[in-house]
Design a protein around this nucleic acid. Structure first.
Lengths: 208, 208
DNA sequence: GTCTATATCCAGATAGAC
DNA sequence: GTCTATCTGGATATAGAC
């Protein structure tokens, strides 16, 4: 009996994830407030009433999504921080991977837009606001530290590392939203254009 | 009588502007959907019912605001385009002015956030969507052209001019939102950090 | 022109049948 | 677990008094 209980738990979690995915799509398309519970239920292929067996409210789903998104971003920034290379190479590698992800992962684009939405509004659940306050700065700080080390190493351009970090994330975020809202029309993404804004002597490396 | 009619028109327009200012504040704080007509009316200091004498709906106010914001951005980009200096200096000057505006104009910050909100959601009035499609690209194209000319001139860094233009606006926009949502804490804005990302040989000019 | 009061509508949440 | 039907609250928009 304990085993079937476990299985139920797993199935429940799977279903919740299905709901979260549906909600992410709708939130990105319509925003938190314009999205109706029914929109999420329809997208997930279940009845409206059933959704309440998994989540108590729309806000609760939103908080779950924001939390996931923040954790993933933090994880990614930690994995860059812990690389066993110099800071300049960390920046280069991170940008290469991020641009690649923009090109290939719709979920990443959606997640960027969700975070932008959340950051840009004060009318989101209090719990989500607190999560953002608590977790949002970590990736910024990680990149700031790497920029600082890179300047000492001589591979990163001059300027307040804090500003460089803001531009780092802003560029990625802006690019993701641009890419997402313009259906990839027009621009061929080239991470070297960004990389060369942060790194010194990119020309030589590029030859490799 | 014709004169008093004119005066009435002016007063009406003044009142509408008051409503628009109130709406901008609320839209930025809460987003289009979370903002109630009553929130706007209260912010403008009038009764809820009265608002309908000036605007037929919340959407109509939103469209008006978006239109204004887009026009102002276009105007600004045209004035940069028509400067009688080289392209490199145009970029430098534009960034200097924009960063200054970020620091001193709350309305500019709010406008940036409104546009971001609108661009980032498909659940806005159709008319607003069309305005964005129609007008949004103009500032991008203007900067793209200047970047291209600057590369020929030898003052602008290498890379797809289209991407450089996206980064230009993305950086300004991202900085505005960061500045706005972090209450100016932490960063001292320095436009040279951005400028040196787009311009070659910024060090020498900086000495001046 | 300006307000208060009200009708209408619609989404969120619940209850109850299967 | 899953659905349909319903209750309830709140926002938009209107009507009507001043």
């Amino acid at each position: 009996m304990a085993r079937s209980k476990e299985q139920n738990e797993r199935m429940r979690e799977t279903r919740k994830e299905k709901i979260r995915n549906a909600a992410l799509l709708q939130f990105v398309k319509q925003g938190l407030f314009a999205t109706r519970i029914q929109d999420i239920a329809a997208e997930a292929g279940i009845a409206q009433g059933l959704l309440y067996h998994y989540y108590a409210s729309k806000d609760e789903i939103f908080v779950d999504l924001i939390n996931d998104a923040l954790d993933k971003t933090i994880e990614a920034s930690y994995s860059v921080r812990d690389m066993e290379t110099g800071p300049g190479e960390k920046i280069r590698f991170a940008l290469e991977k991020l641009v690649e992800t923009i090109e290939h992962s719709q979920t990443f684009l959606d997640t960027c837009r969700l975070i932008t939405q959340a950051t840009n509004s004060t009318a989101i659940p209090l719990e989500a606001q607190n999560l953002i306050l608590e977790k949002r700065n970590i990736p910024y700080q990680v990149i700031e530290k790497i920029m600082e080390a890179g300047q000492k190493e001589g591979t990163v351009v001059a300027g307040d590392p804090k500003m460089l970090s803001i531009f780092f994330w802003t560029s990625i975020n802006g690019l993701a939203i641009y890419y997402s809202t313009n259906d990839n029309r027009g621009v061929k993404l080239d991470y070297w254009v960004i990389a060369s804004m942060f790194l010194i002597e990119t020309e030589r490396e590029r030859e490799e």
